[in-house]
C-alpha cells in the first residue's frame, strides 16, 4: 500500500465520520431544543423523524405516479412539507399531552413512549411493515471522484449541507430573533418571563413544535441514506439523546461538538473493530464519561432554580 492509497482511505474515512456527524447532528438538534431547552423528554422524537421520512416517501410516490417530470424537483418541497407536518403534529401533541406534564419530567418520558407506540403502529397500518425508500432525484445519486481512489457520495454531502443549514438556522433563530430571546428567557427564568409579559405557554408550544419540525427535516434527509420502516425511529432515539446529554443539555453548540466527537470516535472505531463492536465501544465510552461528568462536556452556566 503506497502513500497515495493511504491518503485516499484517510479522506474517505474522514468523510464517513463527517457524514455520521451530520446524521447525529440532525437527530440531536430537535432534541436539543425540546430536551435541552425545555427539559421535556420526548421519546417519540424518533417517530417524528419517521414522519418526515414517510412524508418524503409519500411525496415521491405521488410525484412518480402523477407527474414523473417533476421528479428532479420534488425533494426540497418534500423537506418543507416534512417540517410543516411534523411541526403541526408536534404542536398538537404539546397541546394534548405534554403541557399537562411539564411538572413531571419522568412522566413525559413515559407518556411520549406511549405516543411513540401509537405512531409506530399508525405507520405500520398505513405504509405496511416492510421498509420503504422514496425514488430519489438523479442529482442525489452517484458520487464525486476527485481522484481515482477517492469516492465521495453526493447524498452524504447533501445531508451534511442540510445539517449545517438547519444548525445555522436554529442558531440564528435562537440568538437573533425576538422569539429566540423569549425562549431563552423562559428557559432561564419562567416566572420572571411571565412577569414581563412573555406568553410562556405559547413559547413552550412553538419550541416543542419547531423541535419536532426539525426532527421531520432530519427524517426527510435520512431517506437519502437509508430506508424507512415503522420502527426505524426507535433506532435513532438513544443516539439522539446521548448527543444532547453528552454535549451538555442546555447548550446548543455543545450538541454540535458532541455530535462531531461521537461521530468521529464511532467511525474510527468501526473502521478498526467491526460495526457492532465499534458502536458498543463508543456508547460505553460516552456512558463512562457521563458517569464522571454528568453535566456533559459543555455545561451551560445558568444557575439551576
Amino acid at each position: 500500500m503506497n502513500l497515495h492509497e493511504l491518503w485516499s482511505i484517510f479522506v474517505m474515512q474522514g468523510f464517513a465520520g463527517i457524514s455520521l456527524f451530520s446524521v447525529l447532528l440532525l437527530m440531536g438538534l430537535g432534541l436539543a431544543l425540546i430536551f435541552g431547552q425545555m427539559g421535556v423528554i420526548n421519546m417519540a422524537h424518533g417517530e417524528f423523524m419517521a414522519l418526515g421520512a414517510y412524508t418524503t416517501y409519500f411525496c415521491s410516490t405521488l410525484v412518480q405516479d402523477h407527474a414523473p417530470r417533476l421528479l428532479p424537483f420534488y425533494f426540497p418541497l418534500a423537506i418543507v412539507l416534512a417540517f410543516v407536518l411534523s411541526a403541526a403534529l408536534g404542536a398538537f401533541v404539546e397541546w394534548a399531552m405534554i403541557r399537562h406534564l411539564y411538572k413531571r419530567p419522568l412522566d413525559t418520558l413515559l407518556a411520549s413512549w406511549g405516543l411513540s407506540l401509537i405512531m409506530q403502529q399508525t405507520y405500520r397500518s398505513i405504509f405496511g411493515a416492510r421498509e420503504v425508500t422514496p425514488t430519489l432525484p438523479e442529482w442525489l445519486m452517484g458520487s464525486f471522484k476527485p481522484t481515482d481512489a477517492i469516492d465521495i457520495p453526493i447524498n452524504g454531502v447533501f445531508v451534511l449541507a442540510l445539517a449545517l443549514a438547519v444548525t445555522g438556522g436554529l442558531v440564528i433563530f435562537m440568538f437573533r430573533t425576538p422569539f429566540g430571546l423569549r425562549l431563552r428567557a423562559t428557559v432561564q427564568n419562567r416566572a420572571m418571563s411571565n412577569a414581563v409579559g412573555i406568553n410562556t405557554k405559547l413559547v413552550d408550544r412553538l419550541a416543542f413544535s419547531i423541535g419536532c419540525g426539525i426532527a421531520g427535516i432530519a427524517g426527510a434527509a435520512f431517506t437519502t441514506i437509508g430506508s424507512t420502516g415503522p420502527d426505524s425511529g426507535s433506532r435513532y432515539i438513544v443516539d439522539a439523546f446521548l448527543v444532547v446529554v453528552f454535549g451538555g443539555a442546555a447548550n446548543l453548540l455543545g450538541s454540535v461538538a458532541s455530535a462531531f466527537g461521537i461521530a468521529q470516535a464511532q467511525s474510527i472505531l468501526e473502521f478498526f473493530l467491526d460495526g457492532t463492536k465499534g458502536k458498543v465501544a463508543t456508547l460505553l465510552f460516552i456512558v463512562v464519561i457521563l458517569m464522571f461528568r454528568p453535566q456533559g462536556l459543555f455545561p451551560s452556566k445558568v444557575r439551576s432554580s
Binding site: 399531552m97 406534564l101 405516543l115 411513540s116 401509537i118 409506530q120 403502529q121
Partner: peptide
C-alpha cells in the same frame, strides 16, 4: 395491540 397499549399508557400516566 400497540394502539391499545400506547393509549392505555398515556392515559395511565396522565
Amino acid at each position: 395491540w400497540l394502539f391499545l397499549m400506547g393509549g392505555t399508557f398515556i392515559a395511565v400516566v396522565m
